[in-house]
Nucleic acid binder design. Structure first.
Length: 740
DNA sequence: ACGCTTCCAGTTTTT
DNA sequence: CTGGAAGCGT
């Protein structure tokens, strides 16, 4: 084991070696906070004799947790088999709840977790059941209120009391109560419940509380600026006894206020935890000084902050480049061209990121990069686990686990089609309400109900199938169960028969889910010495997100500014630097919101190590409307001397519509939508041995027929008639496609 | 019961 | 402009 402490700078060392008690580390972007956290854990275990298992370290993302685990594992290599609890707030809560919720709460330890889609469906059910007008109470608005309430630890009862004379809020309160009742009867928790219920469990049950307080002698929290009230309370309860709470955060990177994060948690830490030591980490190891100065100049316009100035001993580096494009597609074109240029200068695709404020902006970028054959990956648009086919298969697994999960029952009772429609479901629902049974129980006893006379055969055969699968699940591995579900439901065959690009991608996703099952099972056995239970797998799926897939492929990263937090790239593009877009229109309503937008800008700038591009447009089309927006105020906040004026002038000169028009070639359209084939691996080289009449599949253009082949070797040109994208001439040696 | 058409609302989203 | 959901017609 190498000496991890020697590698640290003075401030970092001070943090790692700090005495027991509350400690707040204000860690600027790129100041090595993960090193500090992991070294602190190693120090506690190695030098202070703290048991690994009495340490609780909490992160916000699975990705951060994974990285921390790996680094701690290395540092504690020779320290025996015990390991600290390291994970996200949510996964740590799941672990505690599974251990103790049966004694402290009205849940069994095999409770299921509802994701935001499930949540929305359940809320809709409640609205319908209560006969409430969903135009006046849209599910989106309701879920926001419920979520905020839970983040503030407000129960349905307290909610009711709080809004006694507000008619609208009273209605919401009724929905909240029913929603919560349904969750409990389904033995389900939503994301917010995981925290809320853990706090409730610890608050109400003395034994459980003392058990965890005694167990966790040290609590460490990463990204503390993003904690909400419930998470704060959770940390406080656990740390109360030993008072060893070590938090790391950056008030300047608090960008989740709209999601309930309470920036006051970090600003008030010193008052909340008496005798607290505060250590600032201000040396940045990531960016060159021009970039860092730009970030400093932007963020200093905020008033509600602790105050910190990052510095670096790296040189000035490149100046920041600004480009004003004619419109969105033109902006994207510039990005693509610049990427091409820099890749020739030996920058890898995976060292480049294109960032934007809203997901809607990704389309132009995707099209431009695809047209220049630049490999890229879009993060966050539609996550793997929220795809329909993935949710369907998971719903089978969830129903097998818990027959009374009405939500899953309704999802799959007619998926694939079994001729059980709305009417039948309504009849069942009536019985469910009258007799207080679950949908499954009613379906199982369909023959006892006269009104279910005609669909009873279909219902009972569905139940029979689930029963058989349930038995199967008890005697077989997860992988075998997964295969069995696919077998009896025939989902794969049905998609295969469809034969569309879309169904092809669904098949790929179902296969990908299978490899998730297999690798989960392998990892679990390795870690725990025994096979996982179904509920272990389900929970890990629900808590997983797209961000976790760290596929080490060389491709450009395209994502929102929010999603970029915690990451770094040599070369960063921030697009759409326009008033009304970034900062967004809705942030104008308050200084608080504007400051959060500014922090978002700060986060964006500090992602860049060597090259930063800021872009905007003369006119932008949003929702079919074209408008002109002024330069973002954040651009004005960066001093001229940090900017590359040369480029700036050239950019304006280049701005003519003619220049843009000559550069089009925007061609991947299916009603304007880029065609994406998940999991499809196109191969460079296959385009060299096609002949006229071959059917081919192209990653972006979809399926097509070869019309003509001319030239040989590197000169070979193929002409393809794509079903969706139309006619294309392509250089065979550059084209990635697959023969069908 | 299902598929097609029309109408409407539309930030960010670590879990 | 877009995706989703409600509504209508078979």
């Amino acid at each position: 084991m190498d000496n991890y402490i020697e590698k640290l700078n003075e401030q970092q060392k001070k943090a790692v070696l700090a005495e027991d008690g509350p400690i707040l580390i204000l860690a600027g972007a790129g100041s090595g906070k993960t090193s500090v956290l992991t070294s602190r854990i190693a120090y506690l275990v190695r030098e202070k004799g703290v048991y690994s298992s009495s340490i609780l370290a909490i992160t916000f993302t699975n990705k951060a947790a994974k990285e921390m685990k790996a680094r701690v594992e290395k540092l504690l290599d020779d320290m025996g088999i015990y390991f600290p609890w390291i994970g996200t707030f949510h996964s740590m809560c799941v672990k505690m709840l599974r251990m103790s919720c049966e004694v402290a709460l009205n849940y069994t330890s095999s409770f299921v977790i509802y994701d935001s889609d499930d949540q929305k469906i359940l809320i809709k059910d409640c609205i319908k059941e209560l006969n409430i007008n969903d135009k006046m109470y849209p599910p989106r608005m309701i879920s926001h209120h419920i979520s905020s309430a839970k983040n503030e630890l407000i129960s349905p009862k307290e909610f009711e009391g709080k809004y006694k004379d507000d008619f609208q809020m009273e209605t919401i309160s009724t929905i909240y109560s029913l929603y919560q009742k349904k969750l409990v009867s389904n033995n389900a928790m939503d994301f917010d419940d995981l925290i809320f219920n853990t706090v409730k469990m610890l608050e109400t049950n003395k034994e459980v509380r003392e058990f965890f307080q005694n167990k966790f002698r040290h609590v460490l929290i990463d990204e503390y600026q993003d904690t909400n009230t419930a998470q704060y309370k959770l940390a406080e309860i656990i740390a109360k006894k030993n008072n060893n709470i070590f938090v790391v955060g950056d008030d300047d990177q608090s960008i989740y206020g709209w999601r309930g994060a309470n920036i006051q948690n970090i600003l008030n830490f010193e008052y909340d935890f008496k005798g607290c030591e505060v250590i600032k980490l201000e040396q940045n190891y990531r960016s060159t000084s021009n970039i860092l100065n730009a970030a400093n100049h932007v963020i200093k316009n905020n008033t509600n902050r602790k105050g910190k100035e990052l510095w670096t001993d790296k040189g000035d580096g490149n100046k920041i480049k600004f480009y004003k494009a004619y419109n969105g597609p033109n902006e994207a074109l510039f990005v693509a061209a610049e990427i091409k240029k820099q890749v020739e200068n030996n920058i890898d695709y995976d060292e480049i990121a294109v960032l934007y404020r809203t997901n809607a902006q990704s389309r132009d970028i995707e099209i431009a990069l695809a047209n220049k054959d630049i490999p890229f990956r879009v993060y966050g648009s539609l996550s793997f686990y929220s795809r329909k086919e993935v949710k369907d298969v998971l719903a089978y697994l969830k129903l097998i686990l818990n027959h009374n999960d009405d939500l899953q029952f309704k999802r799959i009772i007619n998926e694939p089609k079994r001729g059980i429609g709305k009417t039948t479901l309504q009849k069942i629902e009536q019985i469910v309400i009258d007799e207080g049974l679950s949908f499954y129980e009613v379906a199982k006893n369909a023959k006892d109900y006269y009104i279910l006379h005609s669909p009873k055969e279909k219902l009972m055969s569905f139940v029979n199938m689930i029963e058989k699968l349930t038995t199967f699940s008890m005697n077989n591995t997860l992988e075998e169960l997964y295969e069995e579900v696919l077998n009896v439901t025939k989902i794969m065959e049905i998609y295969k028969k469809e034969g569309t690009i879309e169904s092809r991608s669904r098949i790929e996703n179902i296969k990908e889910l299978k490899s998730a099952v297999v690798s989960f099972e392998e990892d679990f056995i390795e870690e725990n010495g025994q096979g996982p239970k179904l509920e272990n797998f389900i929970a890990s799926c629900t808590l997983a997100t797209d961000q976790d897939n760290t596929k080490e492929q060389k491709q450009v990263t395209i994502m929102t500014l929010h999603a970029a937090k915690g990451l770094e790239f040599k070369m960063v593009f921030i697009t759409g630097m326009e008033e009304g877009l970034f900062p967004s229109m809705q942030s104008y309503e308050s200084e608080t919101k504007l400051e959060e937008e500014r922090r978002l800008c700060y986060v964006g700038i500090t992602r860049a190590k060597e090259m930063l591009y800021l872009l905007n447009t003369k006119e932008r089309t949003i929702y079919g409307k074209t408008q002109s927006y002024p330069d973002s105020r954040f651009l004005q906040e960066i001093p001229e001397q940090l900017m590359d004026n040369n480029i700036k002038r050239k950019a304006f000169a280049n701005n003519s519509f003619a220049a843009y028009k000559g550069n089009t070639g925007i061609s991947i359209k299916r009603g304007g939508k880029a065609i994406e084939i998940a999991g499809f691996k196109a191969v460079k080289g296959e385009a060299l041995d096609v002949i006229k009449g071959d059917r081919v599949l192209h990653k972006k253009f979809g399926e097509g027929t070869i019309k003509k082949v001319t030239g040989k070797g590197d000169e070979q040109v193929i002409e393809v008639d794509f079903d969706m994208a139309g006619f294309k001439r392509l250089m065979a040696s550059y084209t990635k496609l697959k023969k069908l």
